[in-house]
Design a protein around this nucleic acid. Structure first.
Lengths: 118, 118
DNA sequence: AGTTCATTTCCATGAAACTAGAAATGTAGG
DNA sequence: CCTACATTTCTAGTTTCATGGAAATGAACT
């Protein structure tokens, strides 16, 4: 995912909602295994239609991914997108001064960023 | 600033807007010196009233701070709040597994986080 | 092929947010 | 003190977003 102002706004907007934020954090904590839509709906106590709306929103924003497994759809957090977003916010932090930014200290990869090719 | 779901939503919502995102990144790059409202308005080509609306939004969200200098109001990014937000998103990343999260590797402080007391 | 089950789409309603001109506020400097 | 200037508040109109029940889709087991 190429990170620019437009996609950053989409990602931030996707996270700027109580249910979607809880959902994304749930997936962040779930790790690579991810969770099926049904399990998420139960964990967050959301109607199917609402959850589907929020899942689609996060997917459009590039923050989560889906794969099929049996007849369930498994959702996982996209750590690469996450890192890209944070990097974008911090870009040229402090005008390039001796600021202890993640960038300055080498990329702060989360989990499988390298394997998944951010 | 204590970080919880509610304040994270506020912060993300504040950043999830083209002009405010540009504004925040401008202040991140400006560093500790910050910028006066007038200078920001010029840099971003925004009407005063609109800029004021966005500045208030970011301030309410705890992402920026203001101080007076002469007759100008100087705005600066709050790096501590920023780090708190990122940490909240990553909390318990991957269920505590051997995930190369910032937390697991020691706090990723940005600039003067220690001086400003996150 | 048929059936079941997980998930998504449709729809209407209600709430919240962005914009920008003009007027008001208030601080500082002469 | 009074003037000038930087910034904020007011106001109204237009757009965008969240919700949830019911129906529809569609993939997978038998």
């Amino acid at each position: 995912m190429e990170m620019n102002s437009s996609s950053a706004v989409k990602a931030l907007g996707a996270l700027a909602q109580e249910h979607r934020l809880a959902l994304f954090r749930l997936l962040v904590q779930a790790g690579e295994h991810g969770m099926p839509a049904g399990g998420i709906a139960e964990a967050l106590d959301l109607p199917n239609s609402s959850l589907s709306f929020h899942l689609a929103h996060l997917t459009r924003a590039g923050l989560i991914q889906q794969r099929r497994e049996g007849r369930s759809l498994i959702y996982t957090a996209d750590y690469g997108a996450m890192n890209g977003l944070v990097g974008f916010l911090m870009e040229n932090c402090c005008g390039g001064a001796d600021c202890a930014s993640p960038k300055a200290r080498g990329t702060q990869a989360v989990q499988s960023e390298r394997r998944k090719s951010a």
